[in-house]
């Protein structure tokens, strides 16, 4: 394999969405998270534990960074954009909260490094993890710039769900065992259920029909979830979903390393966009009266 081949392959892969050839996408699930509305309450994270059979690892393992929170709410005290917090005596604009789940990158850095293709891109635009194919090399986790992959260093099924807690486990998805990497799936089991229902009813999936657990529970409605390819609604004739509307409004486009916004002040941005991984999660700037 020559270097130029490698670069060509990567380049073709990277542009797979725009130029075709790698995937014919059925859907492209994406999000918009409004940090003006997010209050950092953590409801999304616990909803994720409940929906996705996430293991509770306990204090000692949590200390070692082995917590399995697919969706974590990060909290920062500084505000680099406002630039005054460093010197003030108090935390006068509150905190900066950031709900982080797998960004479902379209040019995911985790995917090409998997030696067994356990992580791959689905026709739904999802960054999937095939648990029974995973051999636990952890290359993907090492390569994720967001650190949003979680490794089962242990078997948690006895400690995390002593009877009868195991009765709560969601039968729609598995409980992962030792040696397997796992991550946010955008609640793929919910997507699957809705797609199956739509197929049985011989229709297309409607906008808002799939709700991820985090988006559904969010007390302020900060998390929007939907299909980035749009969904044609025969009744209204509109092909825009709520989430595409948000992306268009805030002038963020998929497939771009640097956004060329007509109104640069519109709030949309993607975390680490410059790394060229093309995340499907857009954040909207936090707002503060200063």
């Amino acid at each position: 394999m020559s270097l130029s081949n490698l670069i060509d392959d990567w380049s073709r892969y990277r542009k797979g969405r725009e130029e075709g050839g790698f995937h014919d996408y059925e859907h492209m699930w994406g999000m918009s998270i409004d940090l003006n509305k997010c209050i950092g309450c953590n409801a999304c994270s616990v909803a994720c534990y409940a929906e996705n059979n996430l293991a509770v690892v306990g204090k000692e393992k949590f200390e070692k960074g082995q917590g399995m929170h697919w969706l974590r709410v990060e909290r920062y005290w500084d505000e680099p954009d406002l630039g005054e917090e460093r010197t003030s005596e108090f935390q006068q604009h509150g905190a900066s909260f950031l709900p982080m789940m797998c960004q479902q990158c379209n040019a995911a850095t985790c995917e090409p490094v998997c030696p067994v293709a356990a992580t791959y891109h689905t026709p739904d635009g999802l960054n999937a993890q095939v648990y029974n194919r995973c051999i636990g090399s952890r290359y993907c986790s090492n390569n994720c710039p967001f650190r949003l992959r979680y490794f089962n260093f242990w078997s948690y099924y006895e400690d995390s769900w002593p009877a009868p807690l195991q009765m709560q486990l969601n039968p729609d998805i598995s409980v992962r065992d030792m040696g397997v990497m796992e991550k946010c799936t955008f609640c793929v089991q919910r997507i699957r259920t809705v797609k199956d229902t739509a197929r049985m009813e011989d229709r297309k999936v409607r906008d808002g029909e799939v709700q991820t657990a985090c988006s559904q529970t969010c007390p302020t409605g900060a998390i929007e979830f939907g299909d980035m390819l749009g969904m044609y609604d025969p009744e209204t004739g509109v092909a825009e979903t709520r989430v595409t509307k948000m992306w268009r409004k805030h002038q963020v486009e998929l497939g771009k390393t640097k956004q060329n916004k007509q109104t640069p002040e519109m709030r949309g941005y993607r975390v680490f966009e410059f790394l060229n991984t093309d995340p499907c999660v857009m954040y909207l700037d936090r707002v503060r009266e200063v």
């Binding site: 680099p80 941005y269 975390v271």
Partner: peptide, 13 residues
Amino acid sequence: TQVGRKLVSTIPA
């Protein structure tokens, strides 16, 4: 802190 990275971006109201 965000160590200078644009994780949570803030704009004035």
